[in-house]
Design a protein around this nucleic acid. Structure first.
Lengths: 180, 180
DNA sequence: GTCTATAAGTGGATAGAC
DNA sequence: GTCTATCCACTTATAGAC
């Protein structure tokens, strides 16, 4: 695994992520990716079977990390905290991509899979309470920690984002949705 | 104005919005729009100069409504309330479109114009306070009222969404950002 | 206002040489 | 592992008849 001689596959992924972030998934062509790498389109096809494979490979790590998260049996607060850690440490750019290309990516298996996991995370986050307000608050908490994702630079310090997310999820004053 | 004999232009807009919502802007072709309308592509070009013109015409009303909103000299709470009214009464589907096709639409003049107006609205919403937390809260308030936009049906009752938005913007306990 | 026909270009993808 | 050359489906857009 670590003994490979070239890193072209990784370079393709890096450049593709760059380009998709700038112009969107459908707005970026394989020709452009190849040009920026100074190779030909055909070379890309040695490393990836299709264009969809390229973007899927980009989403892969994020999907796996979400699965890890969903397996833990922690409560809402710990869940959103761990989620914030993932966003901050590694997956910000990928999340930004997903968020700005929702329509384009929902037509792709890996994209639909991510949407599914986010839905499950959302359910776990609102815990037992299924009322509309808790539902909305759980969504907003997720948005709070990922709003920064990849637009020119981090805007909200990550600790502030997490604090707001936690407060939005369970506003002080009202005890968190422990009743019922 | 009210005396036109055909409504083809409006029918094109209706079908285009439908299709863009289902498959995204770049994922929908003029051929598909024409087919769903039982006309030919060429007919579309009688009513709109380009594909971009079609989507721009869809965003137009929303842009104008935002300009109206920005001209009023009201405070944050009134602003978000009025915004929620617009989302609820007329522009939900359009906002959903914008939100799910951010990348694709930023390459379009009308789309970039909308992003600009949202930025100004966000600034007005956080009023004088420029600290990271107020900034994030202002963004979240906007998200709160528009999260429902066009996915199969309204999820959060609009009054609940507005209440949460107002609370997120200025959590009770802390007085709203009225001082400097 | 809508049609047929077609231009002109791009896209993703493959074959086969090196 | 990368190249040249090519294919073909499909796109936006236009010309001109009806």
């Amino acid at each position: 695994m670590a003994g490979r001689r070239t890193d072209t596959r990784e370079r393709i992924q890096r450049v593709a992520l760059e380009l998709f972030a700038e112009q969107g998934y459908e707005g970026s062509s394989l020709r452009e990716i190849a040009e920026r790498l100074n190779v030909t389109k055909a070379a890309l096809y040695y490393h990836f079977r299709t264009k969809e494979d390229i973007v899927s490979s980009l989403l892969e790590g994020w999907g796996a990390a979400l699965d890890d998260l969903l397996e833990r049996e922690t409560g809402p607060a710990e869940l959103i905290t761990a989620y914030a850690g993932l966003v901050e440490s590694r997956f910000g750019p990928v999340i930004g991509l997903v968020q700005r290309n929702t329509s384009a990516l929902k037509a792709i298996a890996a994209g639909a899979g991510l949407a599914d996991r986010m839905l499950r995370l959302h359910e776990r986050l609102r815990g037992g309470s299924a009322d509309p307000e808790s539902d909305l608050r759980a969504r907003l908490a997720l948005v709070a920690v990922q709003l920064n994702s990849a637009e020119g630079g981090p805007r909200t310090p990550s600790d502030v984002a997490l604090a707001v997310a936690l407060d939005v999820l369970s506003p002080d004053g009202k005890a968190a949705g422990a009743g019922t």
